[in-house]
């Protein structure tokens, strides 16, 4: 059973392990520096489907199926699927669950969904309610553009603070049993919704940075750990400017993370100037975690990370009505050598 260690943080005493993960990604991600870490990649945004929405759903299903296959499990073995995406009524996750037939919790944490699903999945597994749980999320550049922004072929320039929605999906299978050679979920820190009054929808990094800083600092305070305890503190999609802001806020509060902070949004398109401040979307942190970071943990090159997925909880309607952008960040601590 878990133990509450602070206002926002719980410890998982049984330490559910991440049995397997899978990441699926599109073309822009494939040609980026982490292209080789994804299990499945595809070139065309439609991926042989009739609509982009269908392509996104296919990504999510493939990610979950691949993660299950790696663990040697079938849908019937999994007690819960926890997932969500960016589309209205989280249709990618809901329709994927329709096909897979696994009992389903639909989540909406915007781009923080991967950490949210891992946290809740770990609570379910640690609480003894499931042997296996699947946590998954996805985002697709084209579906997000048409829902949140403009038609794809509209010729308007992007602002320098904008970020590009990542076309990718990630899935992780949590298990109640497994040895210490697997990464374990040890702590979870649930974020509060923070709103600093930023209302520029093209500057989400600035909206999310304070939420990320609060969650990370709360985690360190409540666990009594130092920032340096982790090989990396991995934020989801703050982007280059958002990362700068987060590090600045943290350093003003007395926490220096410049040495070990990484941001999935910065990493995934590194070197690609067209992406301005970097990547964003549920699939950004999900594919980087389920690809590169978990792979590196399994290979032993990194031992401990604090995974902090960040999301904004506005909608096009709230933005048009002049409301500012509320943001959230959830943190899960993943460590090697802890499984039970």
């Amino acid at each position: 059973m878990g133990t509450r260690v602070g206002q926002k943080t719980v410890r998982f005493d049984k330490m559910p392990i991440i049995l397997s993960t899978a990441a699926v990604a599109g073309n822009a991600e494939k040609t980026g520096p982490y292209g080789s870490t994804f299990d499945i990649v595809f070139d065309d945004d439609l991926w042989g489907e009739k609509t982009y929405e269908l392509a996104e759903r296919k990504m999510l299903i493939k990610a979950i199926e691949t993660a299950m296959a790696k663990a040697g499990l079938k849908p019937d073995d999994i007690s819960y699927l926890l997932g969500g995406d960016l589309l209205n009524q989280i249709i990618s996750a809901g329709f994927a669950a329709r096909q897979l037939g696994i009992p389903f919790f639909g989540l909406y944490g915007a781009c923080s969904t991967m950490a949210e699903s891992l946290m809740l999945g770990a609570m379910i597994v640690d609480g003894g309610f499931a042997k296996y749980a699947a946590c998954a999320t996805s985002s697709h550049f084209a579906t997000a553009e048409r829902q949140f922004r403009n038609p794809l072929e509209l010729g308007t320039p992007k602002t320098p603070t904008s970020q590009n929605t990542v076309t990718a999906s990630g899935a992780a299978i949590l298990s109640s049993t497994g040895d210490s050679t697997y990464p374990a979920v040890t702590y979870a820190t649930t974020g509060r919704v923070i709103d600093m009054g930023i209302n520029d929808v093209n500057n989400m990094g600035a909206a999310m940075a304070p939420a990320a800083a609060e969650t990370i600092i709360s985690h360190l305070e409540e666990t009594g750990r130092k920032a340096g305890f982790y090989d990396h503190i991995v934020t989801g999609d703050l982007g280059t400017f958002g990362s700068e802001l987060m590090l600045r806020i943290a350093s003003d509060a007395g926490y220096d993370m410049t040495a070990n902070h990484l941001d999935c949004g910065v990493l995934i398109y590194q070197g690609n100037e067209l992406m301005h401040c970097g990547g964003s979307g549920c699939g950004c942190s999900a594919s980087m975690l389920c690809g590169h970071f978990i792979n590196s943990m399994n290979q032993g090159t990194i031992k401990r990370i604090l995974f902090v997925a960040t999301g904004v909880l506005h909608s096009p309607t709230s933005a048009l009505q002049g409301e500012s952008i509320p943001a959230i960040a959830h943190a899960v601590s993943l460590e090697m050598g802890c499984g039970s």
Partner: peptide, 10 residues
Amino acid sequence: YQKYVKKNMP
């Protein structure tokens, strides 16, 4: 914070 963001954003 808003002032700082406005001043320092790319």
